[in-house]
Structures are given as structure tokens and as C-alpha cells.
Design a protein around this nucleic acid. Structure first.
Length: 430
DNA sequence: TCTGGGGTCCTAGGACCC
DNA sequence: TCTGGGGTCCTAGGACCC
């Protein structure tokens, strides 16, 4: 019924991507421990090898390790997604020269179809790696295997074990067995903490042991998801190679606020800003949305304080990507979820967001039997986008959003947007 | 005595990923 | 004082229908 695949898939993954991006423009960051902080400078989302060696964990809250970082000379930077996104695009541009079929998976990883290269696939992968290194400046590792899950595993091995020289090829069953015997299940793509605990309780500890788990048992432990994963480990491809990106299902703009939001007015400012940004993103992608959800909640890390969370959805009819439609819907949804004492003071919400669902290409938007008497004018959003594109984000905003930005986040240590802002270009001194 | 069964759709919540 | 943001997929359970 299912056949083991013999088509090689490569996964090329950038090493410590965010840190590597920063190091491209600031050589003083080489050889020292560096971490990149999440939005709001909250916790570590990327670490250099040196930071890893110090034991700094992914997701570690920054304020708890301030002393530790000072003692060990750890440099912390705010994240600069504009820069990372641009460099990511450049990496994919280079990869296009190495295979006709690419499946970009995340900001720092791309699956590459290597079928047709035969015995030369390893050498080809090494050249591809070198090209990214010299043309963009980012170090990478490559894993090759017959399924995506095994390619992830191969990539992991290439990163961990210098013996592979940056390219680990698991097309050979003997090499594959050797590696799988040594990889703990927690490192496998798709095995999170919950599944890991269940498997260990069953005595399953390595990738090889999971591969050999009977299918029926794997389904019992982790539904079809785990069953599929076991098949992938056996070399049976269950996760498609997607060289044309599928239609996206949803889109979200959510932010923590620098200070807790205690009045409806401030919450409405934040929600207005998020809905405005969500509308921009829709238009950039040429989409319209059919459902809008607003949520907000208090700080879950402070269980001793009063907690409240709310989520309200509205249908957008007609489906829309117009800033005014989305802001109207979002603010009225927020009002329905708002809970405050009689004087209007709320709980102190620390996070709010706008989520859009039922996305459709603008051209496929269904016509309404009764269109609104005065449809929103697209020329207005065109002008808005043109101005903000030319003069920078948030040059023009709705008054409702305000400029005070009591809810706005911190990013005290962000590096310049070297490659996407003329005013922030690096300066070369001769 | 005995009170249907099968199907669809929607939503909330869990798990996982980077 | 201070703990990210943006996604996907799956399941269970309720509402509803005939």
C-alpha cells in the first residue's frame, strides 16, 4: 500500500539564523555569546553557540538573567525582523539556482528537491551551502533523506556532529540506522513535550525505537499525527513537498503591551493599530477576510492578580480588507468583550490581538445580494498604503489609534534595518 | 417493556512548529 | 517592573437536520 520513497529531499537550515544576520553587520559580535530577544525584549528567541554553551535556554525570560548575562558578557539584541526577512529572501534566491523545486518552510529553512542528481547529490548540496555562505554570508547545514521528517533528522545530525562536514546524507540505510539509534525522541520534528512523555512511559526513547513502534500502537498513543510520523521515519513520505505554497488559512497581528491596559480607550487604541496592520497585510497578499476575532487577556504569569481573558468574533460581510471595516469590527468586538468596573477601569490587559480567518483571494470575493449603499473606497486604502510605504510605517494612522502609544512595546536594543532603509544603511569608512 | 440513528457543521482547545 | 508572535493540524463535543 505504502512504498518507501527513494527521492532525496534536502533540508537546508541556517545556523543560529538571527544571530548570523546580526553578525553580518557587526563583527564585534563574533566569538562572543549573543542572544536575540523577542518582541517587547521579553525572552530569548535565538542564541549563538557561545550563549548555548553557557546554558541559556530558548524562551528564557530576559529579566531573570540580567545579572548572569552581565557576568558572562552576553550581548542581547532586540529582534529585527525586517532585516531577517530580507536576508531570508536572499538565501532562497540563491537556492533557486540549485534546484527547480523549493519548498521554503520557515524564515531559516527550505526543503530542496534533489531528485535527478544521483551520486552527485552530496557534492551538489555542499556547493549550494557554499553559495549561500559566499553570496549572502550566512552559514548553513544540510540534511538529505527520503522524507521530510528524516531530512530534519539528518539536518540535526549535520549540525551536532562535525564529522559530517555540514552535509549529512541519510539516503543510505546503514548510515540512517546508525544516526537514528543515537537521536533521542525529543529531538524529532513533531514530538513535543506531551508526546515525548507518553512515549518514554512506553519505553520508547530513540528515533530508531519510534520507527519500530507498531503503527496501531502509535495511533493509539498519538492519533493519526504520530502514526504518520512513524511512517515518515520508516521512509514512507506522508508530508507533501509543496513547491506551490497553499492558500493560507488565517492571519494574526498580536502584541504584548509595554504597560498594562486598564481603560477601554487604551485597549481600543491597541486593537485599532492591530486591525490596521492586519488590513495592510491582507492587501499586501491580495486577500479579503470573512471572519475577524479580537482577543485580550491579563498577564498569565501573575496568577495572584485578577485574571480575565476575552475573545469575540464577527463576520465581515461583505468580506473585506478595508482598514475602516476591520477597525470598526475590531473595536465593536472588543467593546463586547470588555469588562471593567463602573468607573471604567479594567483588569490591566497585557496582550491583545486581531485574528483574521476565512481568507480568500480578493478576485474570488463572493458578491453580496445587497451590497452596502456606500461601499468602502479602495482608493483611500491605496493612498494610505502608498504614503506609509514611501515615508515609513505609521506615517499616517487613524486618529483612533493615537500617537501616545501607551500600549506600545519596547525594543531598546534593535540593530539598524541595514538592507531595507536608506537612512539605516551601514557606513563604510576607508 | 420499549423513546433513533446517521450525517454535517461549527467551535474550543490541545499539540506542535519556528 | 519585566515571560514573543505567527502559524498549522487534529479531536471532541454540541447543535442541528432529516
Amino acid at each position: 500500500m505504502f512504498e518507501a520513497s527513494d527521492k532525496p529531499i534536502a533540508l537546508i537550515d541556517c545556523n543560529n539564523f538571527y544571530v548570523s544576520c546580526e553578525r553580518l553587520f557587526d563583527t564585534s559580535l563574533h566569538g562572543i555569546p549573543v542572544i536575540i530577544l523577542s518582541n517587547n525584549d521579553g525572552c530569548a528567541v535565538a542564541r549563538s553557540e557561545e550563549a548555548r554553551a553557557l546554558g541559556i535556554k530558548m524562551g528564557a525570560p530576559a529579566f531573570k538573567m540580567r545579572d548572569f548575562m552581565e557576568r558572562h558578557g552576553v550581548k542581547a539584541l532586540s529582534s529585527n525582523y525586517t532585516l531577517y526577512g530580507d536576508l531570508s529572501r536572499r538565501v532562497v534566491d540563491v537556492l533557486h539556482g540549485y534546484s527547480p523545486r523549493l519548498d521554503p518552510y520557515s524564515i531559516d529553512e527550505t526543503f530542496v528537491d534533489l531528485s535527478g542528481f544521483g551520486d552527485r547529490m552530496e557534492a551538489h548540496a555542499a556547493r549550494m551551502r557554499q553559495a549561500v555562505r559566499t553570496q549572502v554570508g550566512i552559514p548553513t547545514c544540510v540534511g538529505i533523506a527520503p522524507t521530510k521528517t528524516l531530512a530534519k533528522l539528518a539536518n540535526h545530525a549535520a549540525k551536532k556532529n562535525p564529522i559530517f562536514g555540514g552535509v549529512c546524507n541519510l539516503m543510505n540505510p546503514q548510515v540512517r540506522d546508525y544516526v537514528m539509534d543515537r537521536i533521542p525522541i525529543g529531538e524529532i520534528w513533531g514530538v513535543g513535550p506531551a508526546t515525548e512523555a507518553k512515549l518514554i512511559a512506553q519505553g520508547v526513547k530513540t528515533a530508531a525505537a519510534l520507527r519500530d513502534l507498531p503503527m496501531a500502537l502509535s495511533r493509539k498513543i498519538g492519533t493519526v499525527v504520530l502514526e504518520r510520523l512513524v511512517a515518515e521515519l520508516r521512509g514512507i513520505a506522508c508530508i507533501d513537498f509543496e513547491d506551490v505554497p497553499p492558500q493560507r488559512k488565517g492571519m494574526a497581528v498580536t502584541r504584548s503591551s509595554g504597560t498594562p491596559m486598564t481603560t477601554f480607550d487604551v485597549l481600543a487604541q491597541a486593537v485599532t493599530a492591530h486591525a490596521t496592520r492586519a488590513a495592510e497585510k491582507l492587501r499586501q497578499h491580495g486577500l479579503v477576510a470573512g471572519t475577524l476575532t479580537v482577543f485580550f487577556h491579563t498577564n498569565p504569569h501573575k496568577p495572584d492578580r485578577p485574571q480575565h481573558s476575552a475573545s469575540r468574533s464577527v463576520r465581515l460581510r461583505p468580506m473585506s480588507n478595508h482598514t475602516f471595516d476591520l477597525v470598526d469590527a475590531a473595536v465593536s468586538a472588543a467593546r463586547r468583550g470588555w469588562r471593567g468596573d463602573p468607573s471604567g477601569n479594567g483588569c490591566g490587559y497585557t496582550k491583545a490581538g486581531v485574528i483574521l480567518d476565512d481568507l480568500l483571494p480578493e478576485a474570488d470575493r463572493p458578491a453580496m445580494l445587497f451590497e452596502p449603499a456606500r461601499p468602502r473606497d479602495a482608493r483611500l486604502t491605496d493612498a494610505l498604503d502608498a504614503i506609509n510605504d514611501r515615508f515609513g510605517k505609521k506615517t499616517m494612522v487613524l486618529a483612533r489609534e493615537g500617537f501616545a502609544g501607551e500600549w506600545r512595546l519596547r525594543a531598546d536594543h534593535r540593530s539598524p534595518r541595514y538592507t531595507t532603509r536608506i537612512s539605516e544603511l551601514p557606513i563604510v569608512k576607508l
